[in-house]
Simulated scan of single mutants.
Amino acid sequence: MKKWMAIALVAVLAVTLLAGCGTAEKKKIVVGLDDHFPPMGFRDAKNNIVGFDVDMAKEAAKRLGMQVEFKPIDWNSKEAELNGKRIDVLWNGLTITEKRKQNILFTNAYMENKQIIVVAAKSPVKTKADLAGKVVGVQDGSSSIEAVEKEAAVAKSFKELKKYPDNVAALMDLKAGRIDALVVDEIVGRYYIAKKAGEYAVLNDNFGSEEYGVGLRKDDKDLQAKLQKALDEMKKDGTSAKISQQWFGANIVK
């Protein structure tokens, strides 16, 4: 009798463990993004979330056999959203920095980007040195802030470093003359400027280059490996280049 009970107990445990393994397998990936960040992730005229990174994430999830959900978040609270497990990844033009690496696990870089300086078309500001005594705008929570602060002497020369909730508001203030320049991701800046021909100019000087990666929780190494494999395959078979061509008119995938 005892032997029979022991066998039954082992069987129950085995079934329980198998069931547990099945439920642990992730079926959906929740992507956190700023939905006011074209062309990486934003809402179209029909209020659908679209963009370069959106298409990249959809393709990667498809290759992993997973569903994908896009969840707009406060980008300034992105690490809290990620580590609070309200999202699975940050995939929205997320710059890889040493500071962020302390709290975020990254894939390899899939894109390189510069921090450009945008001014009004007729602005007297022609170089970085001309920003002395000027009001310079940046998006709050963006890597543009870190890029500017790295050049302490230049940043100290500003009259003010003004932070905005998004780059659209900053560009509107630039056009209105409420700020003298905007430091912004090249990809984003040029996307907007292309629609406003003749209104803005980009200086030859910039605040350095940066690399974009997908951000995950530090302990989520399994998902990181799967995503990296998908990204590598997408680059190798030309899918990433095709998506890039659709959004930027060129292959700018790293």
Score class of each variant (00 low, 15 high):
Ile87Met: 13
Glu146Ala: 15
Val138Ile: 10
Leu216Glu: 06
Lys175Trp: 10
Glu149Met: 12
Met234Cys: 08
Asp222Ser: 14
Val119Gln: 02
Asp35Val: 10
Leu182Asp: 01
Ala147Trp: 06
Phe158Ala: 02
Lys226Pro: 11
Leu227Trp: 14
Tyr110Ala: 00
Ala24Met: 14
Tyr110Ile: 02
Val10Gly: 03
Ile187Gly: 08
Glu81Ile: 00
Asp88Asn: 09
Asn47His: 08
Lys242Phe: 04
Ser157Gln: 08
Lys221Gly: 14
Glu233Lys: 07
Lys196Asp: 14
Ala147Arg: 05
Lys175Glu: 15
Val119Ser: 04
Pro165Glu: 04
Arg100Gln: 14
Ser144Asp: 13
Arg217Ile: 03
Lys128Cys: 07
Gly93Pro: 09
Ile49Ser: 09
Asn251Ser: 02
Ala201Thr: 10
Arg178Ser: 08
Leu82Ile: 13
Thr97Ala: 02
Lys126Tyr: 05
Ile87Trp: 11
Asp53Asn: 12
Ala19Pro: 02
Pro39Phe: 09
Lys254Gly: 09
Gly215Asn: 12
Gly41Glu: 05
Ile117Lys: 11
Gly189Cys: 10
Asn83Gln: 12
Asn48Ile: 01
Lys46Gln: 15
Asp237Trp: 11
Asp173Met: 08
Val30Met: 03
Tyr192Cys: 00
Lys159Pro: 11
Lys71Ala: 06
Val188Thr: 14
Trp91Met: 03
Asp173His: 12
Val135Ser: 07
Glu146Ile: 12
Arg86Ser: 14
Ala194Lys: 15
Leu203Tyr: 07
Thr239Phe: 00
Met56Ser: 01
Met1Pro: 11
Asp44Asn: 15
Asp130Phe: 05
Asp185Ser: 00
Glu112Pro: 00
Gly213Met: 05
Val154Asn: 08
Glu199Ser: 12
Glu151Arg: 07
Tyr164Glu: 05
Lys99Tyr: 12
Tyr200His: 11
Lys235Ser: 13
Ala152Phe: 09
Ser144Trp: 06
Asp185Ile: 01
Leu94Lys: 03
Thr23Gly: 04
Phe52Ile: 04
Lys128Leu: 15
Gln102Trp: 03
Lys236Gln: 13
Gly93Cys: 11
Trp75Val: 02
Asp53Thr: 06
Pro39Leu: 07
Ile73Val: 04
Glu211Pro: 00
Gly238Glu: 05
Asp219Trp: 11
Ala155Gln: 07
Asn47Asp: 14
Glu98Trp: 06
Lys62Ile: 00
Asp34Phe: 13
Ala121Val: 02
Asp220Gln: 12
Cys21Tyr: 13
Ser244His: 04
Gly22Asp: 10
Glu69His: 01
Leu223Lys: 08
Glu98Ile: 07
Val154Met: 14
Glu25Val: 14
